[in-house]
Nucleic acid binder design. Structure first.
Lengths: 231, 231
DNA sequence: GAATGTAGGATTGTTGAACAATGGGATTGT
DNA sequence: ACAATCCCATTGTTCAACAATCCTACATTC
């Protein structure tokens, strides 16, 4: 496809990108399904390999496509990795508070847990609470505190049955842990055990306001640290 | 940089991508700031133009960088466009409910408004309420109902002062309007005026529970439509 | 026979050069 | 002063060649 043949149309690699997406949709492919090779795509779409590759790289950044060197190209995991990378960069670029990424982030995470208190407490089963307890025990023993903390909150919102909330929770956690150190936000872990136990206790008694308060109490020191780091 | 010189290291375009991000961070560039030309980047980073371009395309997909044909490359707007494209594709790929993208989406939007009722009602000023009213008037007149609806909800969460919530609200709206038609979800607009007026009325009286109920009532028909479209 | 090593093919990664398309500014002409 | 034109810098696209990687199949060895 010589450039002359597509006057007036948009950028070629953009069209190629759209056509690859369309190909996945039309063929009902699923994450992990193999895609045609670069050369096959070149022939099928009538574009040079460079254009096809640039289009693939674009889709790769969105986790719509995943490329394995020497192996092939596959449908991606459709994760929120792009959101993580984008927000992380935003957070690193604007420590001078042009964007209050960190505090906004924490606010949303808190909202996910506090605002869904009724549903969380209502559908929380005994086994879930035990798992939460086990994670706090792990934190108390000082084993992989960060991982346990992350798993705790993931588990907390899991009963909501909302995959988007779960993935956003994870994504925001990733962004926070990536950005906070660069902004001089300390990672105080003294009260974490107590604060998490309070959340569990409130969930056990199925006391909605107590649960909401415990969640707020949990995030309060974090907000304080962020506010302090700004000054 | 001949391939031999970087054995063991990761992909070149990935390194180039990281170095471009670092360049922006180190030089405290802001959205709209110009970046070096492709050839300058080639020279500075010691990579071929193809590799540099693929790296730039990756960053472009994340809106970290923006490329203008024939003009130059600039720092991007750091928007959530990547999230929109990713979620939209996910929604289109999984109408068979592998991902319940649409319902998850609406649930989060509702949570943003309902869960922050206290803060919204508390900080809502007279002028804001008037603007909300004006938007509903516009909807009642049938002028650009979709745009007015979108503006309404954007304005509703604005007093939160949380840029992330505002942008996620916008992003989710975009995804919904892009995905819903393809899934056969009808866009009934009969009750919208009444339902939006109820939200305003509750906000005016500063009645928190009434506000939350009005928000729930507003989203109920949407959830019903999504559920119906699944069956 | 099983484990290991090796050679080959297929696929993506990288390079370099050349030309097209675009946008904006400088030049020119009136 | 204004407009049209030309020119130049920059990004878009193509092509061809070779490198790096992964997997498979085969051969080797114990």
């Amino acid at each position: 496809m010589t450039p002359n043949e597509r006057i007036g149309r948009s950028l070629l690699r953009q069209e190629v990108s759209e056509r690859i997406k369309r190909y996945i949709l039309d063929n009902r492919l699923r994450p992990g399904s193999p895609l045609p090779t670069e050369n096959e795509l070149c022939a099928a779409l009538g574009a040079s390999r460079s254009s096809v590759r640039e289009a693939i790289k674009t889709l790769g950044a969105l986790d719509i496509v995943e490329v394995r060197h020497g192996h092939g190209t596959y449908v991606g995991g459709l994760s929120l990795s792009a959101l993580v990378e984008g927000l992380t960069f935003r957070g690193l670029l604007g420590p001078d508070d042009e964007f209050g990424v960190l505090s906004d982030l924490v606010e949303v995470r808190e909202l996910f847990e506090r605002g869904n208190a009724a549903k969380i407490v209502g559908t929380l089963e005994e086994s879930h609470v035990d798992e939460l307890d086990a994670l706090v025990d792990q934190m108390a023993r000082g084993e992989d505190i960060v991982a346990a903390d992350r798993a705790f909150h993931a588990l907390l919102v899991q009963p909501l049955g909302n995959a988007l909330v779960s993935q956003l929770t994870d994504a925001f956690w990733d962004v926070y842990t990536a950005v906070a150190p660069h902004l001089g936000v300390p990672t105080d872990e003294n009260d974490t055990v107590v604060l998490h136990r309070a959340i569990i206790a409130a969930a056990r008694t199925a006391n909605l306001t107590a649960f909401a308060d415990a969640v707020i109490a949990h995030y309060t020191p974090i907000r304080t640290r962020i506010a302090a780091a700004r000054a």
